[in-house]
């Protein structure tokens, strides 16, 4: 039977920023668990592997120290990536003879670097919104958007009628749009 209820649609707005501002150490742990892999992947694009983990640690340490500047209305991941970006730039300035792909550096410095961080943050928030859908809807949308399957291929893969795939995707997209519109993904 198709599951219609959406667990996330009625979930409260993410309060991670507010909890961090209040000094909740568990919020920092949650932030590290939620965003650490993304920060590590982002930093790893620009700095040598040996420096990467140090910068990740510095980033979350600085996030904790600067938690009073967190705006609850702004995405925590965007704020965190902004810190990581600054630390990566500092690190590259300090190191000698670092060899970096110039096209990737455009994603780190200046205006392009800021835009890249915002884009990654938005992508992370959208992905989190997707993950919060009920499994049937999330699975159908993941297969369509991240595995490049057509609806017919999804139906074959899951062993369900194509009409069911369409219904799951339609409901999932509707619920995700609601969360985006309400500003819940941050």
């Amino acid at each position: 039977m198709e599951q219609i209820e959406l667990t996330s649609a009625t979930a409260p707005v993410d309060e991670l920023a507010a909890r961090l501002r209040a000094g909740d150490e568990r919020a920092l742990e949650e932030c590290y668990r939620r965003h650490g892999p993304l920060v590590r992947s982002y930093v790893g694009r620009f700095v040598p592997r040996d420096d990467c983990e140090d910068i990740v640690q510095q980033t979350f340490f600085e996030l904790w120290r600067s938690r009073s500047r967190l705006d609850p209305a702004r995405s925590v991941v965007a704020f965190t990536l902004g810190i990581a970006r600054n630390r990566a730039i500092d690190q590259l300035r300090r190191r000698k003879n670092v060899v970096v792909d110039v096209s990737q550096l455009r994603d780190l410095v200046g205006e392009d670097g800021e835009v890249f961080v915002e884009r990654l943050a938005w992508a992370a928030d959208v992905r989190r919104g997707l993950d919060s859908l009920v499994n049937e809807q999330r699975e159908a949308l993941e297969l369509a958007y991240f595995e490049d399957l057509t609806q017919r291929e999804i139906a074959d893969r899951l062993g369900i009628p194509i009409g069911t795939v369409k219904a799951r995707m339609s409901r999932g997209m509707h619920h995700l749009a609601e969360r985006i519109e309400k500003g819940e993904l941050r």
């Binding site: 884009r119 938005w122 992370a124 997707l130 958007y145 999932g172 997209m173 509707h174 985006i180």
Partner: peptide, 8 residues
């Protein structure tokens, strides 16, 4: 949603 997921 389509645009957002494509961006992600």
């Amino acid at each position: 949603t389509h645009g957002s997921l494509r961006a992600a």
